[in-house]
Write a protein that binds this DNA or RNA. Structure first.
Length: 423
RNA sequence: GGAUGGGUGGCCGAGUGGUCGAUGGCGCGCGCCUGGAAAGUGCGUAUAGGUCAAAAGCCUAUCGUGGGUUCGAAUCCCACCUCAUCCGCCA
């Protein structure tokens, strides 16, 4: 959410910022709405003040026992209520808030210019893409092992679902448990087990509503979370929190639910893009001056996961056109999939600065001032995609999959599919 | 789901139609007292919005939320949310 008084002070700067997102100038319409709103407020307040003064005079007259004067005042009042002015004010405020709430965050100055992912910047690469001869894709491996079943999932639920069985189901569980443990035990995050169903104000706080409702699954008055970023960030919603000298860090392993309304036909094979998937999420709440360092730190926490799994990955600095609605800057982590012979996103770490905090009203007191907190979120990492990456990266010639060292105690074996029939 | 009782400032807690943004206490801040501290004592201590170049000041709103009654609502009425307890149901 944007600060209208800031737009008022520098309308041109705001238009330039929105232009980087590929948007038309917004300030003229916003300022017009703001003027109308302020006019409505002035009108209403003047009316209120008159009303208050009259009521007070009546009260004072009665208090001193002057019933004649009190009655005179009452007679004078007559039909003086002006309810319409309140209606106008509420409408003007709603209009301005509505217009502001669908505008994306202002990007950091150093975010690369560009309209789409082709302008993203590779910041760092770990390892080199392996060129495995006859490398198979994860769904070929999984189906051959009889442990990954899309046909049955389709019967149960439709497209974009999967049934994992046996050691692959266990590998998925092992990945999630191990990652969460890594963040809570060694990266300083507090483990949280949040609700998976949340209400509309909560989704408004992190920016999914009102603009992206079609991406969400809804059940009654609740929505299924598209990411644990939503409940984790909103832990501090509507609060004046003690100023945190160290960032507040939360992590959770949860299922995520996405309608994938806008991605018909994309990534339909395999389990790359599902309606339901597990993800380990990291969220930090910081002071403004600490969010840059925290963003770097958080990204490294995600990178540590990929490195420990023996994956080949790279860090991408998303360009202006590819950065999400609520973020001021975003690093994506992409992992190399030897079977697919492509880099695919497996984590996304964003600094939202005070954009979400304004929506959530998360502040702390600094001296006499109220300061909006900064919020950050990152995947640490997407479990389903980590499963894919592990399968494709550590596949063996015989179609089995070598279990990364760090997962062996969770798996009780060093190989998935050993003994299974290989096609 | 049913019944009953609650939701007031950072916290506790008064307040049942009138100068109430709200007594008092705790906490916090600044003083006084003291050799220093404790105790005692004095003063101060909400948020948002508007007006203003800015500050001060002034105005408006906020006693769970939204409506209503009234010249005037923390206080009365209605709906909803939420908490507690009891009953029912249930993994």
């Amino acid at each position: 959410m944007h600060d209208i008084s800031r737009i008022r002070r520098d309308p041109n700067g705001f238009d330039v910022a929105m232009a980087r997102r590929g948007m038309a100038p917004q300030s003229a319409i916003l300022l017009a709405l703001d003027n109308a709103r302020r006019e409505a407020i002035a009108t209403e307040e003047a009316s209120q003040a008159r009303k208050n003064a009259r009521a007070k005079a009546v009260g004072q007259a009665k208090a001193r026992g002057d019933h004649v004067e009190a009655q005179r005042l009452l007679d004078e009042v007559g039909a003086s209520i002006e309810g319409a002015v309140t209606e106008v004010r509420v409408r003007q405020e709603t209009e301005l808030t509505g217009a502001l709430s669908i505008l994306p965050n202002i990007l950091d100055a150093d975010v690369p210019e560009g309209r789409d992912e082709t302008a993203n910047l590779v910041v760092h690469q770990h390892g080199n893409p392996a060129d495995l001869p006859n490398a198979k894709q994860h769904f070929e491996l999984g189906e051959a092992l009889g442990l990954m079943d899309f046909a049955t999932a389709t019967r149960l639920s439709g497209s974009r679902f999967v049934v994992l069985k046996g050691q692959l189901a266990r590998l998925e569980r092992a990945l999630g448990q191990w990652m969460l443990g890594l963040h809570t035990d060694t990266h300083g995050y507090t483990e949280v087990n949040p609700p998976l169903l949340v209400n509309a104000p909560t989704l408004y706080g992190t920016g999914q509503l009102p603009k992206f409702e079609e991406d969400l699954f809804k059940s009654g008055d609740h929505y299924l979370i598209p990411t644990a970023e939503v409940p984790l960030t909103n832990l501090v919603a509507d609060q004046v929190i003690p100023e945190p000298l160290e960032p507040l860090r939360f992590s959770a392993l949860t299922p995520c639910f996405r309608s994938e309304a806008g991605s018909a036909g994309r990534d339909t094979r395999g389990m790359l893009r599902q309606h339901q998937f597990s993800k380990v999420e990291m969220v930090s709440i910081t002071r403004p001056e600490d969010s840059d360092a925290e963003h770097e730190r958080m990204t490294r926490c995600a990178e540590a996961v990929l490195t420990a799994l023996g994956l080949t990955w790279r860090r991408i600095f998303l360009c202006a056109g590819d950065t999400g609605f609520g973020a001021a800057r975003t690093y994506d982590l992409e992992v190399w999939l030897p079977g697919q012979k492509a880099w695919r996103e497996i984590s996304s770490c964003s600094n939202c600065r005070d954009f979400q905090a304004r929506r959530m009203k998360t502040r702390f007191k600094r001296g006499k001032e109220m300061v909006f907190a900064h919020t950050l979120n990152g995947s640490g990492v997407a479990v389903g995609r980590a499963l894919i990456a592990v399968m494709e990266t550590h596949q063996q010639r015989d179609g089995t999959i070598l279990v990364p060292e760090v997962l062996r105690t969770w798996m009780g074996t060093d190989k998935v599919g050993s003994g299974a029939a290989i096609s």
